[in-house]
Amino acid sequence: MDVVKNKQNFSTSTSSIIKQLTNDNTDITYVPYSSELQLPGIMSLIENDLSEPYSIYTYRYFINNWPNLCFMAMDQGTCIGVIICKLDRHRDALRGYIAMLAVKKEYRKRKIGTTLVKIVINAMKLQNADEIVLETEYTNLGALSLYHNLGFIRDKRLYRYYLNGVDAFRLKLFCKGEIPIVEESQRVTGEKANG
């Protein structure tokens, strides 16, 4: 049995990213997660939004393990947007995973979700992530276009991924450039380029 204490890593680099990304949006502030006291606000925001109800342990799994990959968008004292992530090994890659993203209805269409995602992309890149993935319902056009505009590709389709029987897409962003190939490609003879 193990007791996990609330880690409070707040790297200065992350705070500078936040500043960089959000200097034009004055009324909304972006803060990293800092205490379990913020959890009820986060949970009520997400529960309103997602089709799958999560138990508090799901939140704790992510937030207690990767507190520095959870960010909130605040309007004064109220949490109106949140992103919850993790980052660990997947096969031979260091894979970032966006578990939850939610923005309160009245605050949508203001790029708050996009900003939250950009903050974590940068935070994950600083931690040397190779790729960032997430799943979203194939019918969730809002999310699909948000991630598409940031350069995520639809890597896989997951059949009946959600319990309501809806397909999902696995979206993926590559953080590292082309992995060098040893052999230089050669044109196959007779390949008709203009046929």
């Binding site: 193990d2 007791v3 006291l37 138990s55 508090i56 799901t58 799994y61």
Partner: peptide, 23 residues
């Protein structure tokens, strides 16, 4: 507040299949 007791092996699957009593 913020403390969590769990088995060393506590993973995402356990978290997602756990329930909250009286919910």
């Amino acid at each position: 507040i913020g403390q969590l007791v769990h088995l060393e092996s506590f993973g995402l699957y356990d978290a997602m299949s756990s329930i909250e009593i009286m919910d």
